[in-house]
Design a protein around this nucleic acid. Sequence first.
DNA 1: GTTCTTTATCGTAATATTGCGATATAACAA
DNA 2: TTGTTATATCGCAATATTACGATAAAGAAC
Lengths: 106, 106
Amino acid sequence: MGLTKTEIFSDKQNALAKMAKALAHPARIAILEHMLEQKACICGDLVTEIGLAQATISQHLRELKDVGLIKGNIEGNRMCYCIDEAKWSLTKKELVDLFNQLKSCC
Amino acid sequence: MGLTKTEIFSDKQNALAKMAKALAHPARIAILEHMLEQKACICGDLVTEIGLAQATISQHLRELKDVGLIKGNIEGNRMCYCIDEAKWSLTKKELVDLFNQLKSCC
DNA sequence: GTTCTTTATCGTAATATTGCGATATAACAA
DNA sequence: TTGTTATATCGCAATATTACGATAAAGAAC
């Protein structure tokens, strides 16, 4: 137990849950907001802005990168992360599609 | 450790992360989709449709109820769950607001 | 009343997440 | 070269999540 039974769900359901999981931590929301406001794309700047340890921020960045929401560019000895616009838009669409299905119920 | 440092984030960031967490499991996506399609609002029906144990579905329903995305009405000895339209719309707006902040970056 | 049905909750095992210090790696600075 | 800076990754401890069997509670059916 303790393991999600992904095989009984559709690919779409699993994919959407995975994207939601990437958003399911305030540090990752904060990281994305910083990138959206273009205050900070550099790992070190995010460490200063957010106030978690460098190892922790790096780990959160990796989770966002793993699901494709952000991408990283090497700039000398630093990393500049930014939103992946294609994946961002696609995710927005998938979420809006879910939320737009609302009809009145019981 | 192992505990999210909610105190260093804004209420808004914590709230959005919490809603995302509620969506961060394929079973809960499936439950919401069933309710949206009005195929099943009854716990027992969801157990049959989805194929997880009754205790597990009940637990997922509770998580959705705890964040306010769904509400439950007692119908005799059964429970009819449905989307809470106000909370649903508000959550949609908060997510869309986040996703609409996209500007081009580095 | 008794029994059946339905759902919630408890307890528990397996697994995942969060956070950070320590360390490794790679580019820059001198 | 040596030292500095920036980031990634390892390893670990604390906590959370997932899943389910067993049981409790409450209404329905008899």
